[in-house]
Design a protein around this nucleic acid. Structure first.
Lengths: 146, 146
DNA sequence: TACACTTTAATTGTGCACAATATAAAGGAG
DNA sequence: CTCCTTTATATTGTGCACAATTAAAGTGTA
Protein backbone atom coordinates (compact mmCIF):
# COMPACT_ATOMS: atom_id res chain seq x y z
CA UNK A 1 0.00 0.00 0.00
CA UNK A 2 2.43 2.63 1.16
CA UNK A 3 5.74 0.81 1.21
CA UNK A 4 7.80 3.87 2.10
CA UNK A 5 6.18 4.45 5.48
CA UNK A 6 5.60 0.87 6.53
CA UNK A 7 7.09 0.37 9.99
CA UNK A 8 7.87 -3.26 9.16
CA UNK A 9 10.28 -2.29 6.42
CA UNK A 10 12.13 0.33 8.41
CA UNK A 11 15.60 -1.07 8.94
CA UNK A 12 16.29 1.82 11.31
CA UNK A 13 13.44 0.64 13.51
CA UNK A 14 14.52 -2.99 13.57
CA UNK A 15 18.00 -1.91 14.62
CA UNK A 16 16.69 0.45 17.30
CA UNK A 17 14.34 -2.22 18.55
CA UNK A 18 17.00 -4.94 18.52
CA UNK A 19 19.40 -2.79 20.48
CA UNK A 20 16.86 -2.31 23.25
CA UNK A 21 15.91 -5.99 23.22
CA UNK A 22 19.54 -6.95 23.73
CA UNK A 23 20.05 -4.65 26.68
CA UNK A 24 16.83 -5.91 28.26
CA UNK A 25 18.12 -9.45 27.83
CA UNK A 26 21.37 -8.49 29.55
CA UNK A 27 19.60 -6.71 32.37
CA UNK A 28 19.18 -9.60 34.87
CA UNK A 29 22.87 -10.52 34.63
CA UNK A 30 24.07 -6.93 34.73
CA UNK A 31 21.87 -6.17 37.71
CA UNK A 32 23.61 -8.88 39.70
CA UNK A 33 26.90 -7.15 38.95
CA UNK A 34 25.32 -3.82 39.89
CA UNK A 35 26.08 -2.24 36.50
CA UNK A 36 24.10 -1.03 33.51
CA UNK A 37 24.68 -1.85 29.86
CA UNK A 38 26.61 1.34 29.02
CA UNK A 39 28.67 0.77 32.16
CA UNK A 40 29.43 -2.74 30.92
CA UNK A 41 30.74 -1.20 27.70
CA UNK A 42 33.02 1.08 29.68
CA UNK A 43 34.33 -1.96 31.54
CA UNK A 44 34.98 -3.69 28.22
CA UNK A 45 37.14 -0.74 27.20
CA UNK A 46 38.99 -0.66 30.49
CA UNK A 47 39.59 -4.41 30.56
CA UNK A 48 41.37 -3.97 27.26
CA UNK A 49 43.23 -0.75 28.11
CA UNK A 50 44.13 -0.48 31.72
CA UNK A 51 44.20 3.28 31.82
CA UNK A 52 42.20 5.57 29.57
CA UNK A 53 41.29 9.21 29.34
CA UNK A 54 37.62 10.15 29.17
CA UNK A 55 38.30 11.26 25.62
CA UNK A 56 39.65 7.85 24.61
CA UNK A 57 36.70 6.01 26.13
CA UNK A 58 34.40 8.39 24.30
CA UNK A 59 36.17 7.79 21.01
CA UNK A 60 35.90 4.01 21.38
CA UNK A 61 32.26 3.98 22.47
CA UNK A 62 31.19 7.01 20.46
CA UNK A 63 29.90 8.77 23.58
CA UNK A 64 30.56 12.34 24.68
CA UNK A 65 31.47 13.82 28.04
CA UNK A 66 27.87 14.75 28.71
CA UNK A 67 27.13 11.04 28.88
CA UNK A 68 30.41 9.78 30.25
CA UNK A 69 31.17 12.22 33.05
CA UNK A 70 28.13 11.36 35.17
CA UNK A 71 28.32 7.67 34.22
CA UNK A 72 31.96 7.46 35.30
CA UNK A 73 31.16 9.29 38.52
CA UNK A 74 28.50 6.71 39.32
CA UNK A 75 30.96 3.92 38.60
CA UNK A 76 33.56 5.60 40.78
CA UNK A 77 30.90 5.88 43.50
CA UNK A 78 30.48 2.11 43.30
CA UNK A 79 34.26 1.65 43.47
CA UNK A 80 34.70 0.09 40.03
CA UNK A 81 37.20 2.75 38.98
CA UNK A 82 39.17 5.87 39.91
CA UNK A 83 39.16 9.18 38.05
CA UNK A 84 42.04 11.60 38.36
CA UNK A 85 43.51 14.49 36.43
CA UNK A 86 46.61 13.64 34.43
CA UNK A 87 49.89 15.04 35.76
CA UNK A 88 51.28 15.89 32.31
CA UNK A 89 48.12 17.43 30.97
CA UNK A 90 45.74 18.88 33.51
CA UNK A 91 42.91 18.89 30.97
CA UNK A 92 42.77 15.11 30.84
CA UNK A 93 40.99 12.95 33.36
CA UNK A 94 42.51 9.49 33.49
CA UNK A 95 40.26 6.57 34.35
CA UNK A 96 41.68 3.40 35.89
CA UNK A 97 40.03 0.22 37.16
CA UNK A 98 40.16 -0.68 40.83
CA UNK A 99 40.67 -4.26 42.01
CA UNK A 100 36.90 -4.55 42.15
CA UNK A 101 36.61 -3.28 38.59
CA UNK A 102 39.09 -5.86 37.37
CA UNK A 103 37.46 -8.61 39.40
CA UNK A 104 34.02 -8.24 37.81
CA UNK A 105 35.55 -9.51 34.60
CA UNK A 106 35.35 -13.08 35.84
CA UNK A 107 31.69 -12.74 36.68
CA UNK A 108 30.95 -11.01 33.37
CA UNK A 109 32.23 -13.85 31.23
CA UNK A 110 28.70 -15.20 31.00
CA UNK A 111 27.44 -12.06 29.28
CA UNK A 112 28.94 -12.45 25.80
CA UNK A 113 28.34 -16.18 26.10
CA UNK A 114 24.67 -15.74 26.89
CA UNK A 115 24.30 -13.40 23.94
CA UNK A 116 25.95 -15.84 21.55
CA UNK A 117 23.68 -18.62 22.78
CA UNK A 118 20.53 -16.55 22.66
CA UNK A 119 21.27 -15.21 19.20
CA UNK A 120 21.06 -18.65 17.65
CA UNK A 121 23.74 -17.60 15.17
CA UNK A 122 26.85 -19.46 14.12
CA UNK A 123 30.15 -17.67 14.64
CA UNK A 124 30.32 -17.02 10.92
CA UNK A 125 26.84 -15.57 10.72
CA UNK A 126 27.61 -13.45 13.75
CA UNK A 127 30.79 -12.05 12.23
CA UNK A 128 29.09 -11.36 8.92
CA UNK A 129 26.26 -9.54 10.60
CA UNK A 130 28.75 -7.61 12.71
CA UNK A 131 30.67 -6.53 9.61
CA UNK A 132 27.50 -5.57 7.77
CA UNK A 133 26.32 -3.39 10.63
CA UNK A 134 29.67 -1.76 11.13
CA UNK A 135 29.76 -0.89 7.46
CA UNK A 136 26.25 0.52 7.67
CA UNK A 137 27.23 2.61 10.69
CA UNK A 138 30.21 3.94 8.79
CA UNK A 139 28.11 4.96 5.79
CA UNK A 140 25.39 6.50 7.91
CA UNK A 141 27.94 8.43 9.95
CA UNK A 142 29.68 9.89 6.94
CA UNK A 143 26.44 10.80 5.20
CA UNK A 144 25.57 14.46 5.25
CA UNK A 145 22.02 15.46 4.36
CA UNK A 146 22.94 18.10 1.79
CA UNK B 1 44.40 -12.16 22.89
CA UNK B 2 41.10 -12.19 24.73
CA UNK B 3 38.53 -12.70 22.03
CA UNK B 4 35.58 -12.95 24.40
CA UNK B 5 35.88 -9.43 25.75
CA UNK B 6 37.05 -7.65 22.61
CA UNK B 7 34.80 -4.66 22.01
CA UNK B 8 35.30 -5.01 18.25
CA UNK B 9 33.64 -8.41 18.18
CA UNK B 10 30.65 -7.46 20.28
CA UNK B 11 27.69 -7.59 17.95
CA UNK B 12 25.58 -6.05 20.69
CA UNK B 13 27.84 -3.01 20.66
CA UNK B 14 27.81 -2.59 16.90
CA UNK B 15 24.00 -2.69 16.96
CA UNK B 16 23.77 -0.23 19.85
CA UNK B 17 26.25 2.04 18.14
CA UNK B 18 24.54 1.81 14.77
CA UNK B 19 21.18 2.66 16.26
CA UNK B 20 22.54 5.86 17.74
CA UNK B 21 24.39 6.73 14.54
CA UNK B 22 21.15 6.44 12.59
CA UNK B 23 19.18 8.69 14.88
CA UNK B 24 21.99 11.26 14.80
CA UNK B 25 21.87 11.15 11.01
CA UNK B 26 18.11 11.75 11.11
CA UNK B 27 18.40 14.57 13.59
CA UNK B 28 18.79 17.56 11.20
CA UNK B 29 15.73 16.53 9.19
CA UNK B 30 13.66 15.67 12.24
CA UNK B 31 14.56 18.94 13.91
CA UNK B 32 13.06 20.85 10.99
CA UNK B 33 9.83 18.96 11.58
CA UNK B 34 10.13 19.67 15.32
CA UNK B 35 10.03 16.00 16.25
CA UNK B 36 12.45 13.46 17.72
CA UNK B 37 13.24 9.99 16.41
CA UNK B 38 10.90 8.11 18.79
CA UNK B 39 8.21 10.65 17.92
CA UNK B 40 8.79 9.89 14.24
CA UNK B 41 8.19 6.22 15.02
CA UNK B 42 4.89 7.10 16.68
CA UNK B 43 3.91 9.04 13.59
CA UNK B 44 4.77 6.03 11.42
CA UNK B 45 2.34 3.97 13.49
CA UNK B 46 -0.39 6.59 13.33
CA UNK B 47 -0.01 7.15 9.59
CA UNK B 48 -0.73 3.46 9.17
CA UNK B 49 -3.53 3.20 11.78
CA UNK B 50 -5.49 6.35 12.10
CA UNK B 51 -6.58 5.77 15.65
CA UNK B 52 -4.64 3.76 18.22
CA UNK B 53 -4.68 3.13 21.95
CA UNK B 54 -1.51 3.81 23.90
CA UNK B 55 -1.33 0.06 24.43
CA UNK B 56 -1.40 -0.65 20.70
CA UNK B 57 1.32 1.90 19.95
CA UNK B 58 3.36 0.35 22.72
CA UNK B 59 2.90 -3.13 21.31
CA UNK B 60 3.99 -2.04 17.84
CA UNK B 61 7.02 -0.05 19.00
CA UNK B 62 7.83 -2.21 22.00
CA UNK B 63 7.61 0.77 24.35
CA UNK B 64 5.74 1.02 27.65
CA UNK B 65 3.52 3.71 29.08
CA UNK B 66 6.37 5.13 31.12
CA UNK B 67 7.97 6.15 27.85
CA UNK B 68 4.87 6.79 25.78
CA UNK B 69 2.68 8.82 28.13
CA UNK B 70 5.05 11.79 28.42
CA UNK B 71 6.12 11.48 24.77
CA UNK B 72 2.51 11.58 23.57
CA UNK B 73 1.79 14.53 25.86
CA UNK B 74 4.66 16.43 24.27
CA UNK B 75 3.34 15.60 20.82
CA UNK B 76 -0.12 16.69 21.87
CA UNK B 77 1.40 19.91 23.16
CA UNK B 78 2.83 20.51 19.68
CA UNK B 79 -0.57 19.74 18.14
CA UNK B 80 0.45 16.64 16.20
CA UNK B 81 -2.20 14.52 17.89
CA UNK B 82 -5.10 14.32 20.36
CA UNK B 83 -5.36 11.99 23.33
CA UNK B 84 -8.72 11.09 24.81
CA UNK B 85 -10.26 8.35 26.92
CA UNK B 86 -12.27 5.79 25.01
CA UNK B 87 -16.04 5.93 25.49
CA UNK B 88 -16.50 2.14 25.55
CA UNK B 89 -13.57 1.44 27.83
CA UNK B 90 -12.51 4.23 30.14
CA UNK B 91 -9.16 2.55 30.78
CA UNK B 92 -8.02 3.13 27.23
CA UNK B 93 -6.59 6.38 25.94
CA UNK B 94 -7.13 6.73 22.22
CA UNK B 95 -4.57 8.63 20.19
CA UNK B 96 -5.54 10.27 16.90
CA UNK B 97 -3.60 12.46 14.49
CA UNK B 98 -4.59 16.06 13.92
CA UNK B 99 -4.48 17.70 10.48
CA UNK B 100 -0.98 18.87 11.33
CA UNK B 101 0.02 15.35 12.31
CA UNK B 102 -1.21 13.99 9.00
CA UNK B 103 0.38 16.82 7.06
CA UNK B 104 3.92 16.16 8.30
CA UNK B 105 3.82 12.95 6.35
CA UNK B 106 4.56 14.82 3.13
CA UNK B 107 7.56 16.52 4.63
CA UNK B 108 8.80 13.28 6.17
CA UNK B 109 9.03 11.42 2.90
CA UNK B 110 12.69 12.39 2.66
CA UNK B 111 13.54 10.53 5.86
CA UNK B 112 13.34 6.91 4.71
CA UNK B 113 14.77 8.02 1.38
CA UNK B 114 17.77 9.66 3.02
CA UNK B 115 18.39 6.55 5.05
CA UNK B 116 18.27 4.29 2.02
CA UNK B 117 20.70 6.55 0.20
CA UNK B 118 23.07 6.90 3.10
CA UNK B 119 23.11 3.18 3.80
CA UNK B 120 24.68 2.39 0.44
CA UNK B 121 22.69 -0.85 0.39
CA UNK B 122 20.65 -2.34 -2.43
CA UNK B 123 17.01 -3.04 -1.68
CA UNK B 124 17.82 -6.74 -1.47
CA UNK B 125 20.67 -6.26 0.96
CA UNK B 126 18.48 -3.98 3.03
CA UNK B 127 15.67 -6.49 3.24
CA UNK B 128 18.05 -9.31 4.10
CA UNK B 129 19.65 -7.29 6.84
CA UNK B 130 16.22 -6.30 8.11
CA UNK B 131 15.12 -9.95 8.27
CA UNK B 132 18.33 -11.02 9.97
CA UNK B 133 17.99 -8.38 12.65
CA UNK B 134 14.32 -9.10 13.24
CA UNK B 135 15.13 -12.76 13.70
CA UNK B 136 17.91 -11.89 16.10
CA UNK B 137 15.55 -9.65 18.07
CA UNK B 138 13.05 -12.48 18.28
CA UNK B 139 15.62 -14.94 19.58
CA UNK B 140 17.06 -12.49 22.06
CA UNK B 141 13.60 -11.56 23.32
CA UNK B 142 12.53 -15.15 23.89
CA UNK B 143 15.78 -16.11 25.56
CA UNK B 144 15.60 -16.47 29.31
CA UNK B 145 18.86 -16.56 31.24
CA UNK B 146 18.07 -19.78 33.12
C1' DT C 1 -24.25 -8.55 44.49
C1' DA C 2 -19.64 -9.05 46.35
C1' DC C 3 -15.00 -9.79 45.62
C1' DA C 4 -10.81 -11.31 43.58
C1' DC C 5 -8.39 -10.81 39.40
C1' DT C 6 -6.96 -8.65 35.15
C1' DT C 7 -6.10 -4.86 32.09
C1' DT C 8 -4.75 -0.09 30.92
C1' DA C 9 -2.54 4.23 31.90
C1' DA C 10 -0.20 7.26 34.73
C1' DT C 11 3.41 8.27 38.03
C1' DT C 12 8.00 8.11 40.19
C1' DG C 13 12.75 7.56 40.14
C1' DT C 14 17.18 6.36 37.94
C1' DG C 15 20.21 6.38 34.16
C1' DC C 16 21.47 7.18 29.75
C1' DA C 17 22.05 10.30 25.05
C1' DC C 18 23.08 14.47 23.23
C1' DA C 19 22.91 19.49 21.97
C1' DA C 20 24.67 23.66 23.71
C1' DT C 21 27.45 26.14 26.58
C1' DA C 22 31.13 27.00 29.94
C1' DT C 23 35.74 26.65 31.82
C1' DA C 24 40.31 25.87 32.15
C1' DA C 25 44.66 24.13 30.39
C1' DA C 26 47.75 23.57 26.43
C1' DG C 27 49.85 24.99 22.26
C1' DG C 28 51.10 28.09 18.98
C1' DA C 29 52.01 32.76 16.18
C1' DG C 30 53.93 36.95 16.26
C1' DC D 1 55.83 36.97 26.82
C1' DT D 2 50.81 38.14 25.11
C1' DC D 3 46.94 36.92 22.43
C1' DC D 4 44.44 33.51 20.06
C1' DT D 5 43.03 29.07 18.95
C1' DT D 6 42.45 24.40 20.10
C1' DT D 7 41.59 20.63 23.21
C1' DA D 8 39.54 18.09 27.31
C1' DT D 9 36.23 17.87 30.50
C1' DA D 10 32.21 19.53 33.01
C1' DT D 11 27.53 21.49 33.32
C1' DT D 12 22.73 22.32 32.00
C1' DG D 13 18.53 21.15 30.00
C1' DT D 14 15.49 18.12 27.29
C1' DG D 15 13.88 13.75 26.01
C1' DC D 16 13.86 9.10 25.98
C1' DA D 17 13.95 3.95 28.29
C1' DC D 18 12.46 1.17 31.75
C1' DA D 19 11.61 -0.89 36.45
C1' DA D 20 8.36 -0.46 40.01
C1' DT D 21 4.29 1.19 41.92
C1' DT D 22 -0.40 3.12 41.92
C1' DA D 23 -5.06 3.79 40.51
C1' DA D 24 -9.02 3.10 38.09
C1' DA D 25 -11.96 0.45 35.00
C1' DG D 26 -13.39 -3.90 33.31
C1' DT D 27 -14.25 -9.16 33.93
C1' DG D 28 -15.33 -13.52 36.01
C1' DT D 29 -17.30 -16.21 39.49
C1' DA D 30 -19.30 -17.81 43.64
Amino acid sequence: MEPVFCLEDHLCFSIYSCSRAISRMYQPVLQKLRITYPQYLVLLVLWENHECSVKQIGALLDLDSGTLTPLLKRMEGKAFLKRERSQDDERKVMVRLTQKGMAVKEKAICIPEAFIQSSNLTMDEMQNLNQAIKLLTKHVTNFRTN
